[in-house]
């Protein structure tokens, strides 16, 4: 036995079906019921107007202006390369297509940008290394200096005269054995007969001297330190 459908039930049913009636996909067997109800229901008629206008506005929204031709070329390039790989006939052009297809993906772009930056930094560093002057730091390996006398590195003040420097070296029993480097660093051998306990005092005296800007021991008398 078929139960009679109440007006409220018919309204609720139509209300739901209107969404599909409005886009033209409601099955034919359900359309006549919807149309019969629409003829007598203002609310459903109003809702249909709303849904039709909504659909119209959505369909007329701006199209994406992207070229399918370029996308298709990229895709067929990818397909060719993959098929060549499967058939064992992959050549460098195919590999290039696969790499390009993968690397041109937006998801890869930040990583590629970071890699490019790293390369720039490395190349810059490399270029700097090539042109860097070959001066030595205090910890650099030193060209062996014969003997076991204490060795210091000295930088003299710009305004120090040759006489002042010579007087200072003579007074300390020191002798220049190398330098100046590009940066004005002298390698100086101290008096080999000086007692080790006097070494600190000699260094202090050098550092206090107005003609000296920098003095550092790089080899003690025993070659240790």
């Amino acid at each position: 036995m078929t139960r009679a459908v109440s007006r409220d039930e018919r309204h609720a049913e139509t209300w739901e079906r209107l969404a599909w009636y409005a886009n033209g996909t409601l099955p034919a067997e359900e359309r006549s019921g919807v149309e019969a109800h629409l003829a007598e229901c203002d609310a459903c008629s109003h809702e249909l107007g709303f849904l039709e206008e909504l659909g119209s506005q959505i369909r007329e929204s701006e199209a994406m202006l992207l070229s399918p031709e370029r996308s298709f070329r990229e895709l067929t390039g990818r397909i060719d390369a993959i098929e060549a790989a499967e058939q064992g006939t992959l050549d460098w052009a195919d590999i290039g297509r696969i790499v390009r297809a993968r690397l041109m993906r937006p998801a890869w772009r930040p990583a590629l940008a970071a890699l490019a930056l790293l390369l720039v930094v490395l190349l810059s560093w490399s270029a700097l290394s090539v042109s860097r002057p070959s001066f030595r730091t205090l910890s650099s390996a030193e060209t062996p200096i014969e003997g076991s006398a204490p060795i210091v590195r000295l930088v003299f003040d710009d305004v120090a005269t040759a006489e002042e420097i010579q007087a200072l070296l003579n007074g300390s029993g020191a002798e220049i054995v190398a330098g100046p480097s590009e940066y004005g660093v002298y390698t100086v051998r101290l008096d080999p007969s000086a007692q080790p306990r006097h070494l600190d005092a000699t260094l202090s005296a050098l550092r206090r001297h107005p003609a000296v800007r920098f003095a550092e021991l790089i080899r003690a008398a025993d070659g240790g330190r």
């Binding site: 996909t25 409601l26 659909g55």
Partner: peptide, 8 residues
């Protein structure tokens, strides 16, 4: 439903 025109 409204851009592609698909049924439920």
């Amino acid at each position: 439903a409204y851009f592609m025109g698909h049924s439920c």
